[in-house]
Amino acid sequence: MAIGRIVKALSGFYYVENEDGIFQCRGRGNFRKRKLTPLVGDWVVFEAENRTDGYVLELHDRTNELIRPPIANVEQAVLVFSVHEPAFSPLLLDKFLVHIEANDIQPLICLSKMDLLPEEKLEEIRQYKKEYEKIGYEVISTSVHQADTIEELKPALANRVSVFAGQSGVGKSSLLNAIKPELDLETNAISKSLNRGKHTTRHVELIPIEGGYVADTPGFSSLDYHGITEDSLSACYPEMADRIQECKFRGCTHSNEPKCAVKAAVEDGEIAQHRYDSYIQFLEEIKSQKRRY
């Protein structure tokens, strides 16, 4: 028996990598009985007589697990958001950030397609960048046509497991191709009528880059609130989490309660209005989801 990490899952096979190479494996039937599904990123115990005929026997404990995309043991999430085609959406970015914060993963905001940004939108994007940096997030502006911006992104990927995530059409695969041209990942232009891209990535795979791994994942534009409650949502907003203890009422949801430190910070301009607005929208969505189930 040996220990390795699953670097790709495709058509019922798990491709497990260790110091001896990559082995094609199937999962033992007891995973189904225990309702366990091996995920890309999992450390596993496996046995293999040769490179193409192995079995995953046991899963090691996970540090974290994402449902969409299905991946485990992620250290960093590179949230790729284009500034044009499709247009930048702070609301969608906040939803991704909430999802990532809830799973205790370090986020990195990557603004893509900077070369396409119209001049009249430049100051707006600069302001959003400042606001997210003020919160404490690292924000990198990139263009696949500007080599210096790609070089700035590379060190952030070194020696860690990162997942590239974002809605389809924002240029995740194009960025990975710019970082490592030999990948030659499939890319497609976005639909002009729908203002979003086609899904070009069809499975999750860990790609070795800069001494670490990057997961190129299927594009998606919506996230559920698995494991996130009305009480825990504000903890996924760092600028709110810092003020929770200052609220008058314990369990304050920062919506209708008096003497709320978060609402006071919004009024004073210390918390961006659009961040508070997204928080209230997500709070209502969580309440609605709770009522449905």
Rank of each mutant, 00 (worst) to 15 (best):
residue 235 A to W: 11
residue 115 D to E: 14
residue 288 S to D: 10
residue 28 R to S: 13
residue 66 L to W: 11
residue 25 C to K: 07
residue 168 S to D: 02
residue 268 D to Q: 15
residue 104 D to R: 10
residue 192 K to T: 09
residue 153 L to A: 00
residue 274 H to N: 13
residue 104 D to L: 10
residue 239 E to R: 00
residue 116 L to P: 03
residue 194 L to V: 12
residue 11 S to R: 13
residue 132 Y to K: 04
residue 197 G to H: 08
residue 171 G to Q: 09
residue 157 L to F: 02
residue 77 A to M: 03
residue 2 A to E: 12
residue 19 E to S: 15
residue 183 L to W: 09
residue 293 Y to V: 09
residue 76 Q to L: 07
residue 189 A to N: 11
residue 278 S to N: 10
residue 134 K to P: 02
residue 92 L to F: 10
residue 182 E to A: 10
residue 50 N to H: 09
residue 10 L to P: 02
residue 142 T to D: 06
residue 134 K to A: 14
residue 78 V to A: 14
residue 25 C to F: 08
residue 111 L to R: 05
residue 58 E to I: 09
residue 80 V to I: 14
residue 108 L to K: 08
residue 96 F to V: 03
residue 13 F to H: 14
residue 215 A to E: 01
residue 48 A to I: 09
residue 27 G to P: 06
residue 278 S to E: 03
residue 218 P to S: 06
residue 154 K to A: 02
residue 67 I to D: 11
residue 56 V to F: 04
residue 187 T to E: 00
residue 281 Q to F: 13
residue 185 L to W: 01
residue 62 R to K: 10
residue 32 R to A: 12
residue 125 I to G: 10
residue 87 A to C: 07
residue 68 R to S: 07
residue 170 V to Y: 04
residue 70 P to N: 10
residue 242 D to R: 13
residue 43 W to V: 14
residue 213 Y to A: 03
residue 162 S to H: 08
residue 2 A to C: 02
residue 29 G to C: 04
residue 216 D to E: 10
residue 57 L to R: 15
residue 277 D to M: 00
residue 231 D to E: 14
residue 119 E to P: 00
residue 148 D to K: 13
residue 167 Q to P: 12
residue 111 L to A: 04
residue 64 N to W: 11
residue 37 T to N: 13
residue 161 V to K: 12
residue 270 E to S: 05
residue 154 K to G: 01
residue 169 G to T: 07
residue 226 H to M: 10
residue 290 K to Q: 15
residue 119 E to D: 12
residue 150 I to D: 05
residue 86 P to D: 07
residue 196 R to C: 06
residue 10 L to M: 15
residue 128 Y to F: 11
residue 31 F to H: 06
residue 221 S to E: 11
residue 121 K to V: 01
residue 124 E to F: 03
residue 187 T to C: 04
residue 289 Q to R: 15
residue 165 A to C: 15
residue 89 S to A: 09
residue 219 G to A: 08
residue 248 K to I: 02
residue 80 V to M: 07
residue 94 D to E: 06
residue 27 G to V: 09
residue 92 L to Y: 03
residue 133 E to K: 09
residue 159 N to E: 13
residue 90 P to H: 03
residue 161 V to N: 04
residue 106 Q to W: 07
residue 193 S to W: 03
residue 23 F to R: 05
residue 75 E to Q: 15
residue 244 I to L: 12
